[in-house]
């Protein structure tokens, strides 16, 4: 089972991880706002995650940890 962890406080809501995910299971949480004032990224379907780490490779702020 894969596990994605976001250091949400430091997310800048750029959305680059969302576009990088081949499974289309990331989104920006438009119902949430972090300390920096951004809509942070979140995972919609953890079970569908293949732990490829494309999201983490693309994240300019290095806030994603991927485990499996």
């Amino acid at each position: 089972m894969s596990k994605l962890t976001f250091n949400t406080d430091n997310c800048k809501g750029c959305g680059l991880c969302v576009d990088a995910c081949p499974k289309h299971i990331l989104r920006l949480a438009t119902d949430k706002i972090n300390k920096k004032g951004h809509h942070p990224a979140e995972i919609i379907d953890q079970a569908a995650c293949i732990a490829c780490a494309c999201c983490a490779l693309m994240c300019p702020d290095v806030i994603i940890t991927v485990e499996k």
Binding site: D9, G13, A53, L57, P60, V66
Partner: peptide
């Protein structure tokens, strides 16, 4: 599978989003 490298500090980057 992926985590922040040790050679980076915990300081958040000041760069613009993206």
């Amino acid at each position: 599978v992926f985590q922040k490298p040790h050679a980076l500090t915990d300081a958040p980057f000041h760069y613009c989003p993206g």
